[in-house]
Simulated scan of single mutants.
Amino acid sequence: MRVFWLGLFVGGAFAQRPVDIVFWHTLDPPGREVLERVVADFNRSQRDYRVVAQYVGDLREGGVKLISALRAGNAPQLYYGEVSFVGRAVQENLALPLDEYLGGLPADFYASLMETGRFRGRTYALPVELHLPVLFYNADQLAARRLAPPETWEALARVAQQLTTRSARGFVVVSDVYSFSTVVMARGGQLVREGRPNFTDPKVVESLEYLQGLVRGGAAVSRNIAEAQFAMVDFVRTRVFMGIAPITLWPVLESRTPIPFRLGVAPVPQSPGGRLPLAGGNLMVLRGASEAQARGAVAFWRYWMEPAILADWVRTTYALPLRRAVEPLLGDFYRQDPRRRVVLAGLEQAQTWTQDPEMTLWYAPLEEALERVLKGNAAPRLALEEAQRKALALERR
């Protein structure tokens, strides 16, 4: 009888053991601190699941580590990836469909934002940190010259030139794919059309010619992907006075960096037919996760999306509010500083910046072309034609 009761006790103990969900993420502070708090609170709030969060570097470093882990058979069950990775993850049979676990989802989620996690009609990722770009500028420098924040691309070039001095440039150009896509989309173009690279489209070529003109004319400095972190340093140290970046850079600038000037925030200039690139991070449950782990991952996301928790997340990261229910909780956040509303005004022009599975393969040839043009003064059209040929060759492999 004692053995019987001991068996029940041991069996009950094992039954109470939570299902572990290893979660790899790429969030930097201050978002990382909120995430760690959400994970700890979720784990305390229930006994069925235990999320084990691990920071694996930035988005590109995380991607390299994930590929290695997948090859070695020790990948996590939950991964925080950029929205552009969803299509590739589905094509490579890495991400699990999650629709069957999303029953009873509140109706107040913004459908357009939830679409960033859908591919070919099914949900493979759950959005958490979505953002749009804005124009950051040195408000003191513009005020000293009686300049208004530029509302058109022509005005941006003119203001950049007027801000330029012997020791500083008016604008900083970062030649990574997302930053270039921001300019292309806002000017009415797109880098991908019908699943194929669209690098030689006139609007894409014109966008690169525009950026090269700023750099050649001395009104802008160019930073490549390896130097991207220095773009923020240039801005903070007043070596440049304007730059386009995701809204989520704002809390890093204001909370983590002593800025010796008033920060200005304005909409990105848009041409007729222009769009704003919606980007950011979402959660993907990877192939190999058990059904219990998939359910637990969705339960964790639902917990994260509770209005009070989501409101704290938005206040900290400046990410877009994913639910209408959270907006009343954010009233003071927007009233205290109306500049924070700038990004909300751009939602009507927002479009996921890319969901094409092949786009992740095309990053390298396109960024090589951008650097050759903006650093080496190559002809934009010829560089983009070569990038297109390389991208098509990678597609055929």
Score class of each variant (00 low, 15 high):
Met1Gly: 13
Arg2His: 12
Leu6Cys: 11
Gly7Leu: 13
Gly11Asn: 05
Ala13Leu: 15
Arg17Val: 03
Val19Glu: 09
Ile21Tyr: 02
Leu27Glu: 06
Pro29Gly: 05
Glu33Arg: 10
Val34Pro: 01
Glu36Thr: 02
Phe42Gly: 04
Phe42Leu: 08
Asn43Trp: 07
Arg44Phe: 01
Ser45Tyr: 03
Ser45Trp: 00
Gln46Leu: 08
Tyr49Gly: 09
Ile67Trp: 09
Leu70Trp: 05
Ala75Glu: 06
Pro76Cys: 06
Gln77His: 00
Glu82Pro: 04
Asp99Gln: 13
Leu102His: 08
Leu105Gln: 15
Pro106Gly: 12
Arg122Leu: 06
Thr123His: 03
Val128His: 15
His131Gly: 05
His131Cys: 06
Pro133Tyr: 03
Leu135Asp: 06
Asp140Ile: 03
Asp140Gln: 11
Arg145Phe: 00
Arg145Ile: 07
Arg146Lys: 13
Leu147Val: 05
Ala148Phe: 04
Pro150Gly: 01
Thr152Phe: 04
Trp153Phe: 08
Ala155Gln: 15
Val172Tyr: 05
Val172Asn: 08
Val177Thr: 11
Ser179Gln: 12
Val183Gly: 10
Ala186Phe: 04
Gly189Pro: 04
Leu191Lys: 00
Asn198Ser: 11
Phe199Lys: 12
Tyr210Gly: 02
Val215Ile: 13
Ala219Arg: 05
Val221Cys: 09
Glu227Pro: 07
Ala228Ser: 13
Phe230Gln: 12
Val236Ala: 14
Thr238Arg: 14
Thr238Asp: 14
Val240Arg: 11
Met242Ile: 02
Met242Trp: 02
Glu254Ser: 09
Pro269Cys: 09
Ala279Asn: 12
Ala279Ser: 15
Gly288Tyr: 01
Ala292Ile: 00
Ala294Asp: 05
Arg295His: 01
Gly296Met: 07
Ala297Lys: 05
Ala299Pro: 03
Phe300His: 10
Glu306Arg: 13
Pro307Thr: 04
Ala308Thr: 15
Ile309Asn: 11
Leu320Tyr: 00
Pro321Asn: 08
Val326Trp: 01
Glu327Tyr: 04
Leu329Val: 11
Pro338Asp: 06
Pro338Gly: 08
Ala350Met: 06
Gln351Leu: 13
Trp353Gly: 01
Gln355Tyr: 09
Asp356Val: 06
Leu374Lys: 12
Lys375Leu: 12
Ala378Cys: 04
Leu384Gln: 07
Glu385Pro: 00
Ala387Gln: 14
Gln388His: 04
Arg389Pro: 04
Lys390Trp: 05
